[in-house]
Design a protein around this nucleic acid. Sequence first.
DNA 1: ACAATCTTTATTGTATACAATTCATGCCCG
DNA 2: CGGGCATGAATTGTATACAATAAAGATTGT
Lengths: 216, 216
Amino acid sequence: MSRASETAYQKIRSFILQGEAVPGMQLTEEKLSEISGVSRTPVRDAVRRLENEMLVVRSASKRLSVADWSEGEVDEMFTLRAMLEAHAAARAAQRIDGDALNALRGINDELKQAINQSPPNITSFLEANRRFHDLILECARSPRLSKLMPALVEQPVVRRTAHQYSKTQLDQSAVDHDELIAAFAAKDADWARSVMTSHIRRAFHSFSITAAPERS
Amino acid sequence: MSRASETAYQKIRSFILQGEAVPGMQLTEEKLSEISGVSRTPVRDAVRRLENEMLVVRSASKRLSVADWSEGEVDEMFTLRAMLEAHAAARAAQRIDGDALNALRGINDELKQAINQSPPNITSFLEANRRFHDLILECARSPRLSKLMPALVEQPVVRRTAHQYSKTQLDQSAVDHDELIAAFAAKDADWARSVMTSHIRRAFHSFSITAAPERS
DNA sequence: ACAATCTTTATTGTATACAATTCATGCCCG
DNA sequence: CGGGCATGAATTGTATACAATAAAGATTGT
């Protein structure tokens, strides 16, 4: 997208993900245009994109609000994400080349460095993690899959601001990634699929456990 | 959506699906606003929706064109659709109530009537088929799944204008639907998932076989 | 004739003004 | 008091004019 529309998208998105917005709170196009500093027209474009990622929802009478998903819906999201990302891993295993494989190794090294700082650098970890998964998606070479994934990935982040990551969990992520790389190197689609499924579902359960207390 | 934006969406969509548009052909916002009889603003809204359904694509320099997918990409779409619709069927099996079950039976009766006309009424068949699958999706009660499906369902229609349906294929669809209903009545999620998977993948292969000659 | 650059034209992006809806408030009548 | 209805305010939808950008075409120098 072009400049204004893109900045609006970024600003509104971070406004929601950085926790400045309360789930369920109403958003008017005018307020959003103030936040992002552009007119309503590009704001509307940005909102459409966010609507597709289901970060904002539109009520029956076209009013906008910050998405607020029930526990069951978050579960469902993880299930769908596990299915699709496992499928992406399987495709990637059949298509990946040596360069991409090395790139994955490099990204996972960065991820390990982020973990081994004290305290672990969560921001760097999340950033490397995102790049790792994005690169796999790219190697899957499925435009359609690439289109569907954004509606599944960022969602948990909304509630995760206060999320505590244990060193054990972080280390396990790096181990999973290493095993994925091994499966890719062996071009074993089923192996890759299984590892990815476990990886996502484990993340889901540790997310549920630490996120649950918030609901008090 | 509101009136103008919605009519734009409908008109452009049917313009593409009814085969008046050639895959790959360029679409300017102005021409689309002529076609739909509204100004460019609502056209842009409509285009965003179509872009998400991947019926139109946007080139690197923001120019619009009618989507044109390779054979491999159509395959991938069917695979994804099979995965997600099978998942929807499994969820529906656990959540469906008697009313919805009866509604499914009614819809499938209409579908059979459409088949048994001579010649079979393909339009009615497709319409009933769509309602059948839509109702299952609704019974799955997964907003996220409902959001993802549109990007997967209408795609093949683009090339299918000249598609010939054999009586055997049509009958098999009705039989599949009956078995799905049986799985739902038994609340057997795995059964429902399997039947739906077979149903979609069979449709895929009969589609490939009859659509292939077009590529000459 | 060819290539590089400039100019022109086509197309998309943005802002603003206004129209149409929807929501909230208060009023009247029961 | 309380429910329905009118009125006003807030919000979204649409059209249009203009700005920015990308594509196409013309021009010039070699």
